[in-house]
Amino acid sequence: MSEIHHRTTLPIDQRPRVLEMLGIDKVFNGNVTALKGMNLRVNEGDFISLLGPSGCGKSTALRLISGLMSPTTGRILWEGGKSRGDIGVVFQEPTLMPWATVARNVYLPFRLRGQSYASVRDEIHEALDLVGLAKFPDAYPRELSGGMKMRVSIARALVTNPRLILMDEPFGALDEITRQKLNNDLLRLKAEIGCTVIFVTHSVFESVFLSDRIVVMAARPGRVVEELQIDEPYPRDLAFRTSPEYAAYSQKVSAALMTAMGELV
């Protein structure tokens, strides 16, 4: 019985590779190019934000990585073999099963692998503890607030200790206060268990606060225009949010985004 593994995060240039997207194109219905020539290397411990306007292909990129779609051309290489292996996903909606309790929802990835509840009880409780829901394993989703539901969703994504967690605008539907709190908690989680995250957002400030790498994307066709590093050690806190560095990074990322969007005009 292995509980959630706590990894240490290496400096960004020494991290081993998790996956690499090579020359990915995705064309829908033969004529709509959702994604063109995307290359991306994801390393162990990275927190990567895909940032861009709607239609830039950031969600498409996530669906390609998660295996829900296949690329039209190009390849996704996974370290250590062909298979994608174990990944966790968080959608914009909490996406919980309303008929199941919090603990049973978090149990889902294990259940689908055929593992009994008793054999993974410790992992489930540790995951709930990590997201601050240790007291609510028997609650039903409808009894929880929007923020708490999202925590359950995060617990479910990390409970199997996956090599990669994909988050598709997870906090987009929450109010600003809850969103900031969850941003803080996500960084604390990252520092604690050292997970690898790809995070889709259209908020410059969120991406700067959370990521160590930001991939700026543009639309029509969806493509990567710039990759920026945020060299600020974790854990980051309120002090970082109000620091001049944060403002400078935000400005730099905004400028990159503006250039990307300006190409449209």
């Binding site: 601050g132 829901l133 007291k135 609510f136 609650a139 009894e143 929880l144 607030s145 929007g146 923020g147 708490m148 925590r151 109010d175 206060i177 809850t178 709190k181």
Partner: peptide
Amino acid sequence: VQNETDSGIG
């Protein structure tokens, strides 16, 4: 979660 804005439980 106590200080979350809307932590109503049942």
